[in-house]
């Protein structure tokens, strides 16, 4: 995985050096020589070093837990990751939690009252929302709600928190975080909710056709018990795998949204790193994405075992 990323990002056209040179030429009207000299003084990166040498150095450091330094800012990549990761985990994680929870609930009710007005309205809503990419929603939000209608105080909502506010476990700080996370979270929920609703609906429909649901009805069970332990729990099983995949993509899933909303997460950072060809930062972020995908799959397997006794191993409770 690391080898693959390492090679891949070096196949991108341009390198950090040449991009900086171009930027200097454009912005400060320097000649090629002047710009090259200036850029060479700015960072210690030699694009002409053999690839194999760069690679062995990178891998050697990686094994010792050293992700190297940013080519552009010289800040250790590990520090950058630790600084940006919590923002993304917080905003996208919250969004995922909300959309999954809501989607499961609405999808189940849609199937339960299939054919009703509620079902029809929600199916239409979900299908439309499912089809719109997140950046379109984000742009629409900015343009319609922020610029034209002025419902939302956009200028203040951008960024991760209000500048100058002191971080801490206090109500005003938490509220401020939520205030700033609102836009990315809302956009994420809107765009992913439809998918959860539709999947849960179809899963619930097939569960409703199972014999044990008819038997449970025949036993005179209460509506609530039927919906939770009999219909909901069984219908949710196939969605757990999908949830795990989504958890894995939390880290990499918000590049455009974070850029649009100026949210200081890993996604926006990745976009910046790609623009200036900051190899080490890109490598670091891709590594985090890969690790999170692997770990969320392990998590899914554990969760699956918790929900479905059939995949549990051994007999831990024979009481």
């Amino acid at each position: 995985m690391t080898t693959f990323t390492f090679i891949l990002i070096r196949q991108m056209p341009g390198n950090p050096f040449s991009i900086k040179v171009e930027q200097l030429m454009r912005e400060q009207n320097l000649t090629v020589e002047e710009a090259t000299n200036r850029a060479g003084a700015l960072f210690d990166f030699d694009p002409n070093r053999p690839l194999l040498e760069q690679y062995t150095e990178y891998m050697g450091k990686l094994l010792r837990g050293d992700l190297g330094k940013s080519i552009i800012s010289s800040e250790p990549v590990m520090n950058m990751l630790l600084r940006f990761l919590p923002w993304t985990l917080f905003s996208v994680g919250l969004g995922l939690l909300i959309s999954f929870g809501l989607g499961i609930l609405i999808g189940m009710l849609m199937a339960y009252w299939r054919g009703s007005l509620f079902d029809n309205v929600m199916t239409a809503f979900a299908s439309v929302m499912y089809g719109i990419p997140d950046y379109v929603i984000a742009l629409l939000l900015i343009i319609v709600a922020g610029v034209q209608l002025r419902i939302l105080p956009f200028a203040q909502m951008l960024g991760g928190s209000t500048p100058g506010i002191e971080p801490g476990f206090r109500l005003d700080y938490i509220l401020d975080l939520l205030f700033h996370a609102f836009l990315p979270v809302f956009t994420y929920v809107i765009t992913s909710l439809g998918g959860w609703m539709l999947t849960m609906k179809s899963s619930t429909m097939s569960t409703l056709g199972e014999d044990y649901i008819t038997v449970a009805r025949a036993r005179g069970l209460s509506q609530r018990r039927l919906l939770t332990a009999y219909i909901g729990r069984n219908a949710m099983l196939p969605l757990v795998t999908r949830l795990a995949i989504s958890v894995g993509f939390i880290v990499g899933g918000a590049v455009i949204i974070e850029t649009l909303y100026q949210y200081p997460g890993l996604g926006r950072n990745l976009a910046t790193a790609i623009l200036v060809r900051d190899y080490t930062v890109m490598q670091g972020i891709f590594l985090v994405i890969a690790i999170s995908v692997v770990f969320s799959n392990i998590l899914a397997d554990l969760l699956f075992g918790l929900l479905d006794p059939r995949v549990r191993l051994g007999k831990e409770d024979a009481s």
Binding site: Y212, R217, R219, L221, L307, D308
Partner: peptide, 22 residues
Amino acid sequence: RQFLWRECSMVFQGALNSLNPV
């Protein structure tokens, strides 16, 4: 709901699918 099972219960065909697996 009160009538079912208390007065009149049922054994379905296909015992495999008549029990909630979880």
